[in-house]
Design a binder for these strands. Sequence first.
DNA 1: TAGTATGAGTTCAATGATTGAACCAGAGGC
DNA 2: GCCTCTGGTTCAATCATTGAACTCATACTA
Lengths: 168, 168
Amino acid sequence: MERTSFANIPCSLARSLEAIGDWWSPLILRDLFLGVRRFGELVEDLGISRNLLTRRLVALEEAGIVRREPYETRPPRYEYALTEAGLELVPILVALTAWGDRWKAPRKGAPIEFVHTDCGHRLRPRIVCADCSGEISHDNLRPMPGPGARAARGTKVIARKLAGTAGL
Amino acid sequence: MERTSFANIPCSLARSLEAIGDWWSPLILRDLFLGVRRFGELVEDLGISRNLLTRRLVALEEAGIVRREPYETRPPRYEYALTEAGLELVPILVALTAWGDRWKAPRKGAPIEFVHTDCGHRLRPRIVCADCSGEISHDNLRPMPGPGARAARGTKVIARKLAGTAGL
DNA sequence: TAGTATGAGTTCAATGATTGAACCAGAGGC
DNA sequence: GCCTCTGGTTCAATCATTGAACTCATACTA
């Protein structure tokens, strides 16, 4: 009774979650982005169990999201950095942070804010369409069967719905 | 030895993850958005255990992300819908799906694509700054201590780093 | 009237995952 | 030699997930 793997669900969201969908990985990535790169620092900052951190870092490295780099050879010491794939997750984590600011704000306000250095403003992220620059929301998206569409675990009911209605 | 809760970490990302950071919730939200709204449909589509789905739906409802609505009274039958907070997660999930398309694409291509109905193009999401409309990436963000900044679990090391360097 | 179907859950034993504490190992400093 | 620093590993206890079986209320059917 292993935890259900999402790796074989033909959905890119499921595959993303397979890589970073566990309880700790997003916070590990946040810390790596913010400059907390060493094993002991991550343990201290997150309060994560050491063996679990080991497993997560190995998994993130295998997923191509994190890179293990020696910063000292005698004795061998390593630190962790985001790969290109990992760096591309940063805006998404920032967007999720903004959602938390809006809907789950701590009493005393956000402990960390971001400044968009290109314009100097405090960051308010927006998710937009690359083609028209219009904002994306739940009511201007139409799901469609893609090139890999077929009925399989994780999309059985969805596939029927998409086939039946040609979009919501 | 309960699973570590993120609720008391003064970080909005942690608070977001407290609500939707578990293994199944993002997929449940995806299905609700795509029109899979009933208990049995969710079980069939996701292959999730029924008792776990019950717990997740209760937790999502308590977090204000999902709403339970009767669609029939005799016998009582319910379906689930996204609240406003839940709907605002949709673009983030879509962005995460796009990341999966780019870095973890299944062999046969994405089974689901989205069309931005405002412009008719196949969706390529971008995360931008609301002020200058410039794209956000790892190298044009500067983290800063926010109004709620203080040393506490989950940000101890980060707080030191931010205080010391005034940003990366 | 009895039997079956439907939908939304609940209960439960088995097994995997997480936790926290203790331990290990290489190197440098005193 | 002994202590410290850093980056782990090992282990027992406990928690979470899984999958199957079961409940409950009502409707449908013969």
